[in-house]
Design a protein around this nucleic acid. Structure first.
Lengths: 356, 356
DNA sequence: CCGAAGGAGTTATACGTAAAACTTCCCTGT
DNA sequence: ACAGGGAAGTTTTACGTATAACTCCTTCGG
């Protein structure tokens, strides 16, 4: 077929130019590999003359040298890399957590690998199997207890938005969920709401148990009552189903407190399908202040969690652990974003509520 | 302060039990390290007796042995790991792309690291600096040309949702955007819309240029006209601003075609602030079919992109490149999701449109 | 004028793994 | 009886880096 002339790539094969190693740089600069390592590692003060150092840097630049990270990791035994495990990517709470953690990691010249648990909130197969690098530490956010148990290994662990007790975590960083629920309750009480329904998520994550408890506590001893709690999947469709059930209770609640903005979006749809206006007939509150909260109409009254700060604080805590310090649990302040989805309870005049 | 009795951890320090190596397993099983490597690497057929193999596996299990990935990577020169670069995490298009790519990666026993470009759509600092492992390949989604240029290096590259021409990518995988826009245009034409405004994103990503061109082409030669194109940031707030401008044109457009569901959500808010009902007074279409599309009310008519399939196909293409095959460009079919945000044009009876 | 002290490097080594090359033993066919 | 060959291992080596340990040279104090 091919002419005898054409003998395709059997010798001298330069298909991959074999990326340069430190030894290549050394040869090119006329020094030893050790010197290259010293210079490029920045530890050459008093070991190498600045003239030589400059030569080495030029050679490295020239050859486009990139250190082989595998070799470095093997040598050092550490990777300066942490893993951030999140239960879902589509939820922008987690992308904000990641942004915060990534910022701090960059500031400290650490690597950060994001590991989205493939099965939603369910346990990940095994982050340590599927992660390419050996890791120095792990940050896990909003993990269900069973997923947490699967996090074997002896790596330093920082938990975010998780149960501060009963884990092997070196530190825990939480937004002040209880305070958030308290603010929601106070807000609704001030608007005159007395019959409140709770739309919750059926996932096993600790944070939702915590939210439910916090709401019950916030309403305890007030003139308002929790008429029902409906659970469903943590989706808009789930919120729609749960809120439909909640609105069927008689007499119907005047406010739906949702554990998450996704659920709240579903609750809004449910209310409208029942023919109720928001907030005139039914008030709806969310939680987390996702992007979704201000995309809806009316915009959701919700609890803004300091997601970036949670991620950043978690990363700082992990760095502390790695450096041998003994960090402790952090509780970060939250805020109530009052928006259009809540208003005075229908047929009631609340004492201090606006009347216009 | 502390009693003399208490001398905290200074000798015999067993704080880190020094995780076991292959040599430890070998000692424990009474074989050589090479045998351990053969057995655990699965290549012991005809090299090691099955009895010995079982012993080795038991020893590994016993010591909870995990291979040191850094050492393996150094030895093999490959990491069996790819990088997926996405411009934003909060957009669930990308989380779906990732899900698809991750599924295929898992099936092929490859690692996949997700690299969210920190500065939104802007160029990443350098994925290769901040990524812990040396990589075998890169998949990049929806990158702006300038960001693409920054992707130096000679790694095999697969581009998703990007310009098939003028890149050094070994393969490109795109949803059929042009067909999507054509379907949107046909849908609106069938509903009787003749004055159409375009709400576009001001980001440099190729996909938005492509969408704009596709819309213009789809409307060319029809009875409808494109009354204006308004650009803004790729956010709900941006869509609100752009759509507000678009609705101010006189006579006003009866339909707003948005390049993204985020923009469409903003457009819906803009329409309502003008006092227009959706879809009775103004129809709105989105693009991408994000989760947001069905969280809104009315639900958005939008183009559903096969995001998981884009990610999966991209990953398969990369695997093909890594295995030396020569893959080519793929164009994946899209669908129009007809929902509540579009309806017959006001004051017009369209030939085939429903009249109820 | 000699030993000590640095300065400026180099040489050598270890990290843990995969696999090529080697060894040993036993069986088998002629 | 003996070459041949496979089974069942072992020994050895290389991957690229960081750094401890070493060498050689110059300078300087006493």
């Amino acid at each position: 077929m091919a002419s005898a002339r054409q003998h395709t790539g059997q010798a001298a094969d330069p298909s991959t130019p074999a990326r340069p190693t430190g030894r290549d740089v050394a040869r090119h600069a006329g020094v030893s590999q050790a010197t290259v390592s010293l210079v490029l590692g920045g530890k050459w003060q008093g070991r190498v003359s600045s003239r030589t150092a400059e030569t080495v840097r030029a050679a490295a630049e020239d050859l486009r040298y990139r250190p082989n990270l595998a070799a470095r990791h093997l040598r050092l035994g550490r990777t300066r890399t942490a893993l951030l495990v999140v239960p879902a990517l589509s939820n922008d709470f987690f992308s904000r957590v990641h942004a915060g953690a990534a910022r701090v990691a960059r500031e400290h010249d650490l690597g950060l690998v994001l590991y989205p648990s493939p099965e939603g909130i369910a346990p990940a197969p095994d982050p340590f199997e599927s992660t390419p690098a050996t890791l120095d530490g792990v940050i896990a956010s909003s993990m269900a207890p069973e997923a947490l148990a699967a996090l074997h290994g002896d790596l330093p662990l920082v938990m975010l938005d998780s149960d501060p007790a009963g884990t092997r975590a070196a530190a825990t960083v939480n937004p002040d969920i209880a305070d958030g629920m308290r603010r929601v309750a106070e807000h609704l009480l001030a608007l005159g709401h007395r019959r409140i329904a709770h739309v919750s998520a059926s996932v096993g994550s600790w944070t939702f148990h915590h939210r439910a408890r916090a709401l019950a506590q916030a309403l305890a001893g007030t003139s308002a009552s929790l008429v029902c709690t409906e659970r469903s999947a943590l989706t808009v469709a789930g919120g729609l189903r749960a809120a439909t059930r909640a609105l069927a209770t008689d007499p119907r609640p005047s406010a739906l407190v949702c554990d998450d903005d996704l659920l709240a979006a579903g609750a809004c749809k449910a209310a409208r399908r029942h023919g109720y206006r928001i907030p005139q007939d039914v008030s709806v509150t969310g939680f987390d202040d996702l992007d979704l909260a201000t995309a809806l109409e009316p915009e959701l009254t919700t609890v803004r969690l300091p997601a970036e700060e949670v991620g950043a604080t978690g990363m700082r805590a992990l760095i502390g652990v790695l450096e041998g310090r003994q960090p402790d649990t952090a509780l970060l302040p939250v805020a109530l974003a009052r928006r259009g989805s809540t208003g005075p309870a229908a047929g009631q005049r609340s004492p201090g509520a606006e009347t216009g």
